[in-house]
Design a protein around this nucleic acid. Structure first.
Length: 527
RNA sequence: GGUCCCGUCGUCUAGUGGCCUAGGACGCCGCCCUCUCAAGGCGGUAACGCCGGUUCAAAUCCGGUCGGGACUACCA
């Protein structure tokens, strides 16, 4: 932010070395399904840090694996991020100074880099078939040996290569990894991390069909886009050494810049070096402690949206999945998160995605909304049930605002509103058999309904208070309690034994409608 | 099997040697309130995986052990 501000004013040049450069972070989903809450959390943490530091948040689409990605899920990922309010500075639909930002459009670059790596002797073609590799893995497992690639085709002669080719084999390109020594890096959540090279076997950077793997494409693009801090799931922790090796090889002799230039892609940001900070986030798990997946129920952002969770609540909750601020604070606005978030306070243990807790937070947030805000947020959900049009008719709009006040304490998600108040919008009442039998079939029900009809039709003003007084008078004159008096009326009007508070709800409806339903209920009860 | 990581109430967590007979929140239970359902108020349940060691003092440090997880793909 500092850097930006100074440069924006365009005053005398500041010595850039004296300033912390603004970080560049990225979120790079593979569009092979809807946005998973675990990925959404990774996106959030990156976004929070970018916003906090005045850095740049880059969205890059990792669609190198043509078999698994789809245009539909690409759109879905964008929609989910937008719903959550995680706006990106660079990427699809925004500026693309180091673009394109979809890896499927960057394949020329990956091939160019792989070629250069091959020429420099850092990589080599390996001709084993997937079946042969599987067999080797199996054998290694059996012999209790490490199952990684043993480096069988590391030093093939030209003659051997030609022989494989004449068999019709297409090679994958593997990167040569060091045989000894260690790699170390500093992780903002895990502290210093070290791996031994002997445990890391030569890995594939180009598939037999010529497409780039994650390791290659991801490393190239992080370099090409000048990414400085990488925050992602812990499952990628062990991929880090391989990326570090790639960064090293690619920046060593200006290889990356040469390839960018050769393949006609934009140059790297000025002063870009290579990602230096990492933050590996604990996994999100289900109740069985296994990584969160479909069998745990809802895991996609758009499913939670459909169920009526508020985006700001999802953000709050996701932030809390693995991160805490102090002993007691757990409600945060987005702005507060931007201010308070830090990778240093991200925990190392896996986080259970507790839907009950999410519901509670959502309910709390709903209670804070004003009537009109709540009504507005409810609209799409009621419209989705066919209860109102969108935009709603003025009559429905007023009704909805009135109901919002009654609904507020009764729903934890927006989708829960529709079943509670459907009877206010529908012409036909959907009667619940059990409620009808119990309350309209009660001994006192007929006289209650008669008295209620009479006193409600005689009522001077149609307000909640007046209706309450009228119904109380009915109960009083019949010598019964409120419960016995209110329930038949409730079932008559709502069709069910559960509804928002009766007098207030009736006051929102047309008196004629209420009276008509009471009359209709008398016949129902008589049967 | 190998490499790495983790282990505080049912759950998420606070905790960096004395403030801890372990705090908060969700859940659960009870009571109050009450026209149904809620909401709200009050109260309660419940945890440092285990074993050793260091120390005047350990949830906190060390060792071991037992559990759990990630990775070990021509997925990302």
């Amino acid at each position: 932010m500092f850097v930006r501000a100074r440069l924006a004013y365009g005053h005398t040049l500041v010595d850039e070395d004296l300033l912390m450069p603004a970080p560049r972070l990225r979120f790079c989903p593979a569009p092979s399904g809807s946005l998973h809450v675990g990925n959404a959390r990774a996106a959030l943490y990156n976004w929070l840090h970018a916003r906090q530091t005045g850095g740049t948040f880059v969205l890059r689409i990792e669609d190198t694996d043509a078999d698994r990605v789809s245009e539909e899920s690409y759109q879905g990922v964008l929609d989910a991020l937008t719903f959550l309010g995680l706006d990106w500075d660079e990427g699809p639909g925004r500026v693309e100074p180091h673009g394109p930002y979809r890896q499927s459009e960057r394949t020329a670059l990956y091939t160019a880099v792989a070629d250069a790596l091959l020429k420099a002797g850092h990589a080599y073609g390996a001709y084993e078939t997937p079946e042969e590799l599987a067999e080797q893995r199996r054998a290694a497992q059996e012999a209790n040996l490490p199952p990684g690639y043993a480096g069988g085709h590391r030093d093939l002669t030209d003659a051997q290569r030609a022989a494989f080719r004449s068999e019709g084999r297409q090679p994958v390109i593997r990167l040569r990894t060091p045989d000894e020594g260690t790699v170390a890096f500093d992780d903002a959540v895990r502290g210093p991390v070290e791996f031994a090279w002997k445990d890391i076997s030569d890995f594939v950077i180009l598939r037999a069909d010529g497409s780039a793997t994650y390791f290659l494409a991801n490393a190239i693009d992080d370099l090409a886009m000048g990414i400085t801090l990488i925050a992602r799931g812990e499952d990628l922790l062990s991929a880090t050494p391989r990326q570090l090796l790639l960064y090293d090889l690619l920046t060593r002799d200006g290889l990356i810049d040469g390839a960018l230039d050769g393949a006609a892609f934009p140059a790297r940001p000025k002063g870009a070096t290579q990602p230096e900070r990492f933050a590996h986030l604990p996994l999100l798990v289900g109740a069985d402690r296994k990584p969160l997946s479909k069998r745990h129920g809802s895991v996609a952002v758009d499913e939670f949206r459909r169920q009526g969770f508020l985006p700001e609540v999802l953000i709050n909750f996701l932030a809390l999945c693995g991160w805490s601020y102090d002993a007691t604070t757990e409600r945060f606005t987005v702005d507060e998160l931007v201010e308070k978030f830090s990778f240093e306070r991200v925990g190392k243990n896996p986080s259970f995605f507790d839907t009950d807790k999410l519901r509670a937070l959502n309910g709390d947030r709903i209670k804070e909304l004003s009537d009109t805000e709540l009504a507005e947020r409810l609209q799409p959900y009621l419209a989705g049930e066919g209860l109102i049009a969108q935009p709603p008719a003025p009559r429905h709009q007023r009704l909805l605002v009135g109901l919002a006040a009654l609904l507020r304490e009764r729903i934890q998600t927006l989708a829960e509103a529709a079943p509670l108040v459907a009877f206010c919008f529908r012409d036909e009442v959907a009667y619940d058999d059990k409620a009808v039998a119990k309350h309209l079939g009660a001994a006192t029900a007929p006289e209650v309904l008669d008295a209620a009809e009479a006193s409600l039709s005689a009522l001077g003003e149609w307000t909640g208070e007046a209706i309450l007084a009228a119904l109380d008078a009915v109960a009083g004159s019949l010598g019964i309690g409120r419960g016995k008096a209110f329930q038949p009326v409730r079932v008559a009007v709502a069709g069910t034994a559960v509804s928002p508070p009766l007098p207030e709800t009736l006051a929102l409806l047309d008196r004629d409608l209420v009276l008509a339903r009471i009359r209709a209920a008398k016949e129902l009860g008589a049967r």
